[in-house]
Write a protein that binds this DNA or RNA. Structure first.
Lengths: 191, 191
DNA sequence: ATTTAAATATGATCTTTATCATATATAGAT
DNA sequence: ATCTATATATGATAAAGATCATATTTAAAT
């Protein structure tokens, strides 16, 4: 067997990483297979050894991003779930997140996802539900009532990030994020 | 002069109408010039008599949608600004809006807009600011504090509509919208 | 009725890009 | 060292779609 056994796996991850970064910045169509492969220093030929099509790549990149997002990555350390949730929300509602290279896929692919295939849609929905569940868990409640309240919270933070991403005015972005940080506290206070 | 004087103007509006409907449903790239023209029973040749390019069409459609949106269209009648705002928000956060053919461009083009040209970006930002201002006016306040609070409100409703659009699960969509309707009330209560 | 400029339609062209077919490089196993 | 399956690269194909060049239709003005 040629190449070390992890080689292909590593390539695959590099492709996914590049793909997500590019997709989330430019959207599906504006990103070519060539561009993705060049971004991770491979060539288009190799691509089809990893994925059967660009569409499949998109789905995989979405899933990949979800499991490697900031939200999923950082782990609580000596913090109560509530405190941890606080940290999490502030991170989500930060300039770094908004203008970073690995933004939340929920915020960045929303429009794009509508038009794509059922599979992609389902993936998106799965990621969305997971996010709500995660926050609900941290908030430490699970009544139907609280579950409902969380939905408006996630709408807010996803909306904030999505809109902020489009705006050039950095000051305005700061204001949006700051406003949402405050609001999330008020909202969680009622839960 | 051939054709009635309003003819071209009417064609132009038909094109914009079709364009917006299609763009907001499928995104920029998934919509071809041909498709837009067929949608309004014209042919691609005629297109370039109205717009210089597909990109220009996109910008114009965005502006067009903003000035013809539900939000801008309906006028208060015997209602106080506050009551009116209530009606407005409920309309925005309704299934009809989410699954309708003329959804808010802020929610539906967010991802798409990032990658497009500066002009489009500016148009989007203008529409966004106008929306915030409008709500602030109806809310009847204009302190910096309130202005900030509104930003989280609009984030929430835009996010809710954008996400809802992607979800197949109608019940979940209902819950999201309902949750946000409640939250907007709480939020406005504090203003 | 004719004329005519504006509006629309039709048939290329030309570029972009996904995907495929084929060739080459890689490094474990012998 | 050589062999070989796997991974990657290169060049080709083909389809889609934006834009253009040219033809045709329209209805106001004479």
């Amino acid at each position: 067997m040629p190449y070390s056994s992890e080689h292909k796996q590593k390539s695959r991850e590099r492709i996914l990483q590049s793909a997500y970064r590019l997709f989330s910045t430019k959207g599906f169509d504006a990103v070519t297979v060539d561009a993705v492969m060049q971004d991770c220093s491979l060539t288009r030929g190799a691509f089809y050894g990893h994925f059967t099509s660009k569409s499949e790549l998109y789905k995989e990149a979405l899933t990949f991003a979800a499991s490697n997002s900031k939200l999923a990555e950082i782990k609580p350390e000596g913090l109560s779930p509530r405190e941890w949730l606080s940290v999490l929300l502030d991170g989500y509602l930060s300039v770094e997140h908004v203008s970073g290279e690995r933004p939340c896929p929920l915020a960045f692919l929303a429009t794009d996802v509508v038009s794509r295939d059922k599979e992609t849609n389902k993936t998106y929905a799965r990621v969305y539900r997971r996010m709500n569940q995660l926050i609900l868990d941290y908030a430490g409640r699970d009544s139907v009532r609280d579950e409902q309240a969380i939905l408006s919270l996630t709408s807010m933070i996803i909306g904030a990030v999505a809109v902020s991403r489009t705006l050039e005015d950095k000051q305005l972005v700061q204001q949006i994020l700051s406003s949402c940080r405050q609001q999330t506290r008020l909202l969680l206070g009622g839960i």
